[in-house]
């Protein structure tokens, strides 16, 4: 270990990230009351992704992590993306085509 870090610096660094997270939290609550219709969900998800990225990058130290760790985290996200996209590839198309099939049967 090189020179000792002053403890105050550790608390300040965490406090800085905390301020950013708190501002994002305030923004997402305000956003829920805005009259933006269908954009509410994308806005809320974008802010949540921003908060998650801050926590993952700085608190969980993913940016400075080794290749194996980053691959493990990315694989988790990949499976999640596959699960969501394949589920909705089924769910959204099923709803649209069901009328056509039932008409022929009647």
């Amino acid at each position: 270990m090189t020179e000792k870090t002053h403890p105050g610096r550790l608390w300040r660094k965490a406090a800085l990230v905390w301020v950013a997270l708190s501002l994002a939290l305030a923004a997402t609550v305000v956003g829920a009351y805005l009259d933006i219709g269908a954009w509410k969900l994308p806005l809320a998800m974008a802010i949540a992704a921003f908060k998650a990225a801050l926590v993952a990058a700085i608190f969980m130290e993913l940016t400075g992590a080794g290749a194996g760790t980053r691959i493990a985290a990315l694989v988790g996200l990949l499976w999640l993306a596959l699960m969501l996209s394949l589920t909705f590839a089924d769910e959204t198309t099923r709803a649209q085509s069901s009328d056509g099939f039932t008409q022929g049967a009647e």
Binding site: T28, V29, G31, A32, Y33, L34, D35, K40, A44, M45, I47, A48, K51, A52, V55
Partner: peptide
């Protein structure tokens, strides 16, 4: 962080 907007922020405001 993801549960909060999905469970608490629906049906608020206009």
């Amino acid at each position: 962080i993801f549960l909060f907007p999905l469970l608490y922020l629906l049906g608020r405001g206009g």
